[in-house]
Amino acid sequence: MPGKSLSFASQHDVELCAYAAAGERRAFGELVRRHGSAVRNLLRRMGAQAAEADDVAQDAFLAAFERISEFRGEGTFTGWVKRIAARLYLRRLQREKRLAALAAEEGREEADAAAGLGNGGDADRRMDLEEAMKALSAPERLCVSMCYGAGLSHGEAAEALNLPLGTVKSHVKRGLDKLRARLAPNGEPNEGAVVEGRRSNG
């Protein structure tokens, strides 16, 4: 067992997880320092406000510490915590009865998004992910973030969102179409592209 003076900054994530599993909280703190921003960014991209994203991210890291022995190092530590955070955020939305409202939000935001696309030039198309995500409706944002940010399959996202698989797939498809239009490199054709994602196996 390392002494308190041990510097964790040079340790690999897997080693830090092993120390954390042995109860070394400073090692876990180093993991939070490394990956906190990624988890918070994911939650913001899912639609959480900054303060709420921070709250959920904190809860996710605390839950990760409690379950650190379950982390086998098969994927990345960030990916593992992101999945925990995404599920916690959805649970929070469900608890506060906001999930259903978000799912019904589609029409209004789609109109805004269409307006945004209509007058955008090439410069707009090279906007960053944060800006591009704003063009998505709330359910599209949730579904795309969960599948491409948290690494969930369509089936897992459908289960977490308590939505039919087909609904999740169509949210993802529409979301990808909008993102492709916004994120396309200069001059790349993006009209009529067929979305057949790698995650469509559900």
Partner: peptide, 24 residues
């Protein structure tokens, strides 16, 4: 898109956030 999602710039208060988690 996955790469873009994976690219998360460090937030300016990353250290403070980690300290809050450690305190909890």
């Amino acid at each position: 898109l996955e790469r873009l999602f994976a690219q998360s710039p460090d937030m300016p208060d990353a250290q403070a956030f980690a300290e809050r988690v450690e305190r909890r």
